[in-house]
Design a protein around this nucleic acid. Structure first.
Lengths: 151, 151
DNA sequence: GCAATTCTGGACAAAAAAGTCAAGAATGGT
DNA sequence: ACCATTCTTGACTTTTTTGTCCAGAATTGC
């Protein structure tokens, strides 16, 4: 269970675009600012465009800008697009030797565990948007409160 | 952000051993029950042994048994061993172009996000042990209550 | 001691993810 | 019209993760 490179880089690139604040942000600007290679940034931007998070402007003074307002881009949605969901139903089919053995033989006692973790992650991201990530430095998310209320 | 094969298979194998209840469980038993190939089960068991979760008994009537009581094996610990932590400090070093650029240039506004997710996952696994996973079927974890109290 | 059983170790092979490249197509300035 | 700028695409390479194999070593029963 790791943050994938696509999630990390994709989100960082998206934040850079969001930071452009109106002006289109170019691949080479992102590349310099984030220390990610140019081809790799290009690949990430392609992904983000296809995901509908940014739109591209070609030619002179071109670059990328957000497809929607930062308050309207949910971080959870971005991460799900870039890295997939932790738990989805397709999982048991691909790794259980078929859903049958999964259900009957037992394997999937772990299934409810993955679901549990997925719910926790979803909850921790609930209502966090790009604009939350933009506004502050590290303490920003802390100001938003702990991911879960103390029991 | 995905459950890795090692986490999935490792935990399933460990549950099988736990299920043996005293009697050593062999690789081929696990292999049949879980529908995982024999060499792969062997590899997982090797891992689990090195992680200190099971002990092995060679020769006739050998197999694996738990190194500790199921109530004393935290699922979070098992998962951390099998799949690593979602967020650890080494992360910024390897993927930020150095911790410096990470801090100064900006990249790591996402860092606090990963930490937030990590905390949520940890919290959702808190106090869940192998024995919780053993006792019930799917509804077991639900009976334990939702991963986070309703806000 | 011998044979059957069962784990052990390291090396190899296959698949998936990550990252790079080069040629191409749209746009705007002159 | 031409050129510089900037994104676009698909194919390719490298790295990491998964999965397989085989010869070896420990243990037990006879």
């Amino acid at each position: 269970m790791k943050i994938t490179a696509q999630e990390e880089y994709g989100l960082r690139c998206l934040l850079r675009v969001a930071h452009g604040d109106g002006e289109p942000v170019t691949i080479s600007q992102i590349c310099k600012a984030e220390g990610i290679s140019q081809p790799n940034v290009a690949k990430m931007m392609r992904l983000l465009r296809r995901g509908g998070f940014v739109k591209s402007i070609r030619g002179h003074d071109g670059g990328y800008e957000l497809a929607r307002q930062p308050e309207e881009i949910a971080v959870g949605e971005v991460l799900a697009f870039l890295g997939g969901r932790l738990y989805d139903h397709q999982f048991c089919d691909t790794r259980g030797g078929g859903a049958d053995s999964c259900r009957h033989l037992s394997g999937c006692r772990v299934r409810s565990l993955w679901l549990r973790i997925q719910i926790a992650v979803d909850h921790s991201l609930r209502r966090i948007t790009l604009s939350d990530l933009l506004q502050g430095e590290d303490q920003e998310l802390i100001r938003l409160g702990p991911p879960v209320p103390a029991p």
